[in-house]
Simulated assay, not measured.
Amino acid sequence: MLEALLWGAVAASSLIVGAVAGVLRDWNARLVGLVLGFGAGALVASISFELAETGFRLGGAVAVAVGLAAGAIVFYIADRAIDRKEASNASGLSLLLGALLDGIPEQAVLGIGIADGHGVSLALLVAIFVSNLPEAIGSATDMRSARRSTGWILLTWTAIAILCAAATIVGYQLQEIAGAQWRGGINGFAAGALLVMLVGSMIPEATQKAGEKAGLAAVLGFAVAAGLSFAA
């Protein structure tokens, strides 16, 4: 469990790094888009080679299919609620909530993999770390523009990072007590939630900010994460 907490903290630390970067200076939108593209490609590789493949092996097609549907629906409903909040709130709070919503299933899967005896997934770790950065940078920048204090911004993002790191422990415990089908379903749930997030927000935002170069960054991210996955 200590190992799961350690790696969960490493992955979540990029939220704090991004928040610090956001309050210190303004960032070029194209650079943020390229980082988003890289993170999206890395997450696609992690979903394919870490979540779906492992889920099918553990629980079979039915468990993964049920998990995929559940994860997609839960994320979609929660994301719609965030979108409605965003329409009346331009202070960056919606991005903060989105980071929490994305981070919980991502980091739970880290704990699941560690409890399964395969150690930390470097591919998923890199994908989470990179994809967290632009969300935190963008939200912290918006909060600063809304005249939130630096201390409040950093404290809030630290709390989000702690909650995301705690999700790693939850994943670890679930994997310890759940049977093979439940474990496959958990992997499917995380994959479904992440796929909806990727198609609905992360990839469109990357393309909006970086144009067609976002696709090149995504391929690079996919290649790096896939290489790390196979190397492990």
Rank of each mutant, 00 (worst) to 15 (best):
T156Y: 02
G221C: 02
G188T: 10
L195K: 07
G215Q: 00
S201V: 10
T150W: 00
S149G: 13
I203C: 06
L155A: 11
E176S: 09
K213L: 15
S145Q: 11
I203E: 07
K209Q: 15
Q175A: 09
G188N: 08
L220Q: 11
L154E: 03
G211D: 01
G138R: 12
A161G: 03
A193C: 06
G200R: 04
Q208M: 10
I169N: 07
I137F: 01
I169D: 03
G138I: 04
M202V: 13
F189G: 02
A167K: 13
A214H: 09
K209H: 14
V170R: 01
I153Y: 00
F189M: 13
V196I: 14
A159N: 12
A165F: 11
K213Y: 14
I177C: 04
M143N: 02
R183S: 14
G185W: 03
R183H: 04
L195G: 11
E176F: 09
K213A: 12
A191H: 08
S139H: 09
F189D: 04
L198Y: 14
G221I: 02
E176A: 07
A161F: 03
G200W: 00
R144F: 12
G185K: 01
G138M: 05
A190Q: 03
A167E: 07
V170C: 02
A167S: 15
R144S: 11
S201H: 08
L220K: 08
W152A: 04
G211K: 04
G192L: 14
F189Q: 01
R183K: 10
G200M: 03
A167H: 12
G151K: 04
G200V: 00
A178W: 06
Q173W: 15
R148K: 10
T207S: 04
A191N: 06
G192C: 14
A193W: 04
L198C: 10
L163P: 12
T156C: 01
T141M: 13
G138E: 02
E205M: 05
V196G: 02
A166F: 11
A161M: 04
E176N: 08
W157M: 05
G185E: 09
A166H: 07
Y172L: 01
I169K: 06
I177E: 06
S149L: 10
E212V: 14
Q175P: 05
M197K: 09
T150Y: 06
L198E: 08
G215W: 07
L174R: 00
V196N: 08
A159C: 15
A210L: 06
K209V: 05
I203L: 14
R148E: 13
W152C: 01
L195V: 09
A159V: 15
I160P: 01
G138P: 06
L216M: 03
T156D: 00
L163G: 05
V196M: 10
M143D: 01
A178S: 14
A206V: 13
G185F: 06
I203W: 06
I177M: 12
L195H: 07
Q181H: 13
G171L: 11
K209L: 15
S145P: 09
I162D: 01
